Amino acid sequence: ENVVSAPMPGKVLRVLVRVGDRVRVGQGLLVLEAMKMENEIPSPRDGVVKRILVKEGEIVDTGQPLIELG
């Protein structure tokens, strides 16, 4: 699984990683606000951040690609 998608609609509050960062399974990639709750979106696997597909403040839909892992 190379693309991390939004599990719910919401607003991207914070991106916690940068392109080139090594991440571990379960590590927070970004914080999504949904229904006034902050939800940290975890990495599904170990890898390297290849691309960040959203910006802070952006509104996303369920299933929208957020981050690509390499």
Rank of each mutant, 00 (worst) to 15 (best):
V25P: 15
R51I: 15
R51H: 15
M37R: 06
L16D: 11
R14L: 08
L29V: 03
E40A: 08
E33I: 10
V17H: 08
G70M: 02
E40T: 09
V54N: 04
L69Q: 09
R45P: 14
V54R: 05
R18Y: 03
R24P: 11
L13W: 06
T62F: 14
P44D: 15
M35F: 11
K11A: 11
E56S: 03
R24C: 01
I52A: 04
N2L: 07
L30D: 00
E56D: 12
Q27S: 10
V25F: 15
E38L: 14
L53C: 00
R22T: 14
V4A: 13
V17Y: 15
V54Y: 06
R18L: 11
R51Y: 15
N2T: 14
E68P: 00
E40N: 11
P42A: 06
M8F: 05
E68R: 00
Q27M: 02
E38W: 06
G70E: 06
G10Q: 15
V4M: 11
M35R: 10
M8Y: 06
S5C: 01
R18W: 05
G20R: 11
E38Q: 11
A34T: 09
V60H: 08
E56V: 05
E1G: 00
E68C: 01
V54S: 07
E40R: 02
P44G: 14
I41W: 10
E58P: 02
R24N: 07
P7A: 10
M35I: 03
V31E: 14
V48P: 06
A34E: 03
G57E: 04
E33Q: 15
L53I: 07
V12N: 02
G47T: 14
P42W: 13
K50Y: 14
K50S: 14
R24M: 02
E56R: 04
D61I: 07
R14G: 12
M37Q: 05
L16P: 13
V15G: 10
I67E: 08
G63F: 11
V54W: 03
K36V: 11
P7Q: 07
S43D: 02
V17S: 09
I52H: 08
G26K: 14
A34S: 10
L30Q: 04
G70A: 07
M37N: 06
G70N: 10
P65S: 04
V17M: 09
I41C: 00
I52W: 07
K55L: 15
V4C: 01
